Simulated scan of single mutants.
Amino acid sequence: MSPGNVADALLRRWYVLVAALLLTAAGAYHVVRPAPQYVGSAVVVLKPPVTQNQPNQLTNLQPPLAVLSYGVIRQLESPAGAKELKAAGVRGTYHLVPRNSGTSATPRYLIPSLQVQSQASGPEAAVTAVTRIVDVYTRHVDAVQKAEKVPAEARITATVLTSPSAAQVQGDKMRGLAGTALLGAAGGIVGALWLDRYLLSRRKDAPGRRRRTEPVPVVS
């Protein structure tokens, strides 16, 4: 298809371009004035029990603590865990991110800390969701040790290292507008060309447009 044919097709299906322009303008409005979104976050760390040899719990972090933490995370990420969090009042999007606070040589999940994130339309809702996730996580950690009949004084405890807080999501409006314009232009042009080809093919295949070839009588 030559550039001239493309231009003719776009002129014939100008209404598709107008519809794409209106949709692009609506998308650009939401980019310029988006609905406020907040991300709540908190950091939880598992600490071993206090002993005479290690009175400071944070100096006795061991890989088995991280194994326990990751096991609880997998439970909460399962379908049953998602239902439990929903029953606890957690709504919207949330993430459970095991953190590695060591060096570049530290294996993943060695440090038993967990970053909990939740996205909501308001700061209070985001902080509330994070707090409820931390509560469920803490209950699971305690339940695993109860099931193994670990004495209360020898149990691993979950401590909030960074209190739940919320921050507003700040997006890049220029990139959003550029992406919206690109998608709108591409969608409008492709849609107009496809519709033009479709309608022309239907017109050619219409019964009234077909030519009938009849034998020409021969005059002797």
Rank of each mutant, 00 (worst) to 15 (best):
S69C: 05
P55E: 11
V127F: 08
H95P: 01
I111V: 13
L114N: 12
L96G: 02
Y94E: 04
I73G: 12
Q117G: 06
T59S: 12
A125I: 03
L110A: 15
T103H: 06
L110I: 07
A88W: 02
E77R: 15
V43A: 08
L61F: 06
G81A: 01
V127K: 15
E84V: 06
T93I: 08
P123H: 10
R108K: 14
Q37D: 09
G71W: 04
Q54G: 02
L58R: 15
Y70Q: 13
N53W: 02
G89Q: 02
N53T: 15
P79L: 08
L85F: 00
R74W: 03
G81P: 00
Q37H: 10
T128M: 03
S69A: 12
Q117K: 10
G122P: 03
S78H: 03
A125Y: 04
V67W: 10
L46W: 07
E84H: 11
T128V: 04
R91S: 12
A88T: 01
A88I: 00
P112T: 08
Q57D: 05
L61H: 14
Q54R: 09
P112K: 07
A87T: 04
A88H: 05
S41L: 05
T59I: 05
P63Y: 14
Y94P: 00
A66G: 15
L76Q: 09
T128K: 13
S78K: 03
R99D: 07
L68V: 05
P63S: 14
T106S: 15
Q37V: 07
S118M: 05
H95F: 11
G92D: 04
T93F: 11
P112H: 10
P63D: 14
S113A: 14
K83L: 06
R91M: 04
S113W: 02
S101Y: 06
S78D: 05
P64W: 15
A88M: 00
N100P: 04
L96S: 07
Q62P: 03
Q54T: 13
K83Y: 03
P64C: 03
A66I: 01
V116Y: 07
L96W: 01
V43Q: 10
S101C: 07
G81D: 07
G92R: 06
V43S: 07
Y38D: 08
A87P: 02
